[in-house]
Design a protein around this nucleic acid. Structure first.
Length: 270
DNA sequence: CGGCTTTGACCCGCGC
DNA sequence: GCGCGGGTCAAAGCCG
């Protein structure tokens, strides 16, 4: 909410802090092959108003390009980290699987050999159907100790547990909107960033969304990720000017189209 | 009084 | 077989 309204009030973003991340040797005019087209504002003219506007326009132009470079830089860095992590997991399967009881079930639509192996085991009561898994990352106030993720559905809490790898309690919810709705939700504050609450949804609702307008409470930044087994760290989709440009490794899906619009609104930079 | 949360106990899968 | 740890149950209490 604050971020939204701030877009209307002033357009300036403090990007100075980011300059430390940019390779110094490539500053100020190029970065990763991207050319900065920084225009130095002309000296003050007689028409001061026009001059101010031109100055503002130039400043915005520079900010815009800085943001583009920032996103590109972060994207590259994230891809690099994902690749390293993937390599690490490949090279150290024993360590990565240590103390892991069983891998998280894949997202619906995905299938792999390990999953097929798992299905060969003696099926347990609910193991016949692999539930659809999705994760939602919600930014909240640190002071807000409640594990409430407003998504429009009605949830009934049936348990809470402190897990080994996270000092914050994990709450277990069932969808209570429909009597036989199989959807469950786990909500836990992120151990890395206490302002992030991670909600993991399992299964699909067998009823309509009660109220699509209740989807996301204003002021919360939702970041939706699919449940790759090792994706404890959320990746962020920045839905910028070109919506079709978010495919590939950066592609993430949302539960509802509205939320995608919401995210796009939150992250839209120009 | 019905629905919800809390919380300790219990169940069960997995690694050793 | 045993212990650990995540997930679930269910009784008790709270609240509107």
């Amino acid at each position: 909410m604050e971020e939204r309204s701030s877009n209307l009030v002033h357009t300036s973003l403090d990007l100075n802090s980011f300059s430390q991340y940019l390779p110094k040797q490539e500053l100020p005019t190029t970065f990763n092959g991207f050319k900065f087209d920084i225009i130095i504002p002309p000296a003050a003219t007689h028409d001061e108003k026009a001059g101010n506007l031109a100055e503002e326009l130039n400043r915005l132009n520079v900010e815009n390009k800085k943001l583009t470079a920032m996103i590109k830089f972060m994207s590259n860095k994230c891809n690099l980290l994902q690749r390293r992590l993937s390599d690490y997991m490949t090279n150290n399967p024993a360590q990565s699987a240590a103390r892991k009881r069983k891998p998280e079930p894949p997202i619906s639509g995905e299938s792999n050999s390990s999953n097929e192996i798992n299905t060969c085991k003696k099926p347990t009561k609910d193991e016949h159907i692999r539930p659809k898994i999705s994760r939602v990352f919600v930014r909240t106030e640190v002071s807000n100790t409640g594990l409430v993720v407003k998504d429009g559905y009605q949830w009934r809490k049936y348990g809470q547990k402190v897990t080994r790898d996270n000092p914050f309690p994990r709450a277990y919810f069932r969808c209570s909107y429909a009597p036989n709705c199989p959807v469950k939700k786990k909500v836990q504050r992120s151990v890395d960033d206490q302002t992030i609450v991670v909600a993991t949804y399992e299964g699909e609702h067998n009823h309509r969304h009660p109220s699509r307008h209740e989807l996301a409470s204003p002021g919360l930044n939702h970041i939706v990720s699919t449940g790759k087994p090792w994706s404890a760290v959320p990746t962020i989709t920045l839905d910028l000017t070109n919506p079709s440009d978010n495919e590939g490794s950066w592609s993430r899906r949302t539960e509802w189209p509205e939320s995608r619009q919401f995210f796009a609104g939150q992250w839209h930079l120009q």
